[in-house]
């Protein structure tokens, strides 16, 4: 039980990081990025290809992260332009459709071009006991990276003027424009950041289980659930939701079976919408 909870927290932090990107992009412009997981997998596969081509693992990861961030940046500057010119429901719908189409394209391309490619980062060493539970080194490094990334994000949004500028656009775009903030520039930056974070999650996941070319939809689904439970647009909500869902996931797969976990997570998301439509923290940060 203790092991399941600890595993759940480790997993949950990764869920949180995965959800943050999706939630921020939505909070800033109303676009639900259904290709979020595909960006993660794209970065992971580029990392694996760079590694296979002879790069050491750390530079290979850097290449993957940079490519995922660049993909986000380019997407915002191209595909998203017509979307942001629209307002209200048409914007939401066009955004959904375009990103869904993009998800299919990335999935299709990867399956066609690299069908058996996967990213699996093996980190050796004996398990290390944490709170009486023996944790694998890979799992610990993944957690450390995730916690560091999460803490940097929270610090960025709470403590820096640039981070507050992002929050101001989420809270009230018109108010932000009146301050001299350019919402389009903020959205471009956050789309790139969300690509980077998605890839970071795929990389840390690959330290405990392989990330394959068909994992995009799983990542997208998880990110969506986390964002809904945490409240769309809320950074701290996404992390809290990630941890709660991580624990739900590991406990239900421990006591019932892995086949039930996605269903349990979707139930948790559906219940959240019914009980607290604005997320578990009930507001936006």
């Amino acid at each position: 039980m203790k092991a399941a909870i600890l595993d759940g927290i480790v997993l949950g932090l990764q869920y949180g990081l995965l959800g943050v990107g999706l939630t921020l992009v939505y909070g800033l412009g109303g676009v639900l990025n259904l290709a979020h997981g595909q960006l993660a997998v794209l970065g992971a596969i580029i990392t694996a290809l760079s590694f296979d081509a002879g790069l050491p693992i750390v530079p290979a990861i850097a290449v993957g992260l940079a490519c995922a961030a660049t993909a986000g940046l380019v997407l915002d500057l191209t595909l998203m332009r017509p979307v942001y010119r629209l307002r209200g429901e048409p914007r939401v719908l066009l955004g959904l459709l375009l990103m869904l189409g993009l998800a299919f394209i990335i999935d299709g391309f990867l399956v066609w071009r690299y069908p058996i490619q996967s990213l699996s980062i093996r980190i050796g060493g004996d398990p290390i006991p944490i709170l009486g539970v023996r944790m694998r080194t890979g799992s610990l490094i993944a957690s450390a990276v995730t916690i560091a990334a999460g803490a940097s994000l929270v610090a960025f949004f709470r403590l820096t003027t640039a981070g507050r500028a992002v929050r101001s656009v989420i809270q009230d775009e018109e108010g932000a424009r009146l301050c001299g903030i350019n919402p389009a520039r903020v959205r471009t930056f956050i789309f790139a950041l969300s690509g980077f974070l998605a890839c970071l999650v795929a990389v840390t996941r690959s330290m405990t289980a392989p990330v394959t070319v068909t994992n995009g939809i799983d990542f997208t689904t998880l990110a969506l659930i986390v964002a809904v439970v945490g409240g769309l647009g809320s950074v701290s909500g996404a992390f809290l939701a990630g941890i709660v869902l991580g624990i739900v996931n590991t406990i239900s797969s421990f006591y019932i079976g892995t086949y039930i976990t996605t269903i349990m997570l979707l139930v948790a998301a559906a219940l959240t919408i019914v009980i607290r439509p604005s997320g578990i923290l009930g507001g936006r940060t």
Binding site: R164, R167, S168, D172, E174, G175, A176, G180, R284
Partner: peptide, 15 residues
């Protein structure tokens, strides 16, 4: 159109 989740100073620093 001030930002509720921030302090008075942070609001003005943005401007």
């Amino acid at each position: 159109r001030t930002f509720d989740s921030m302090t008075v100073r942070d609001n003005v620093v943005l401007g």
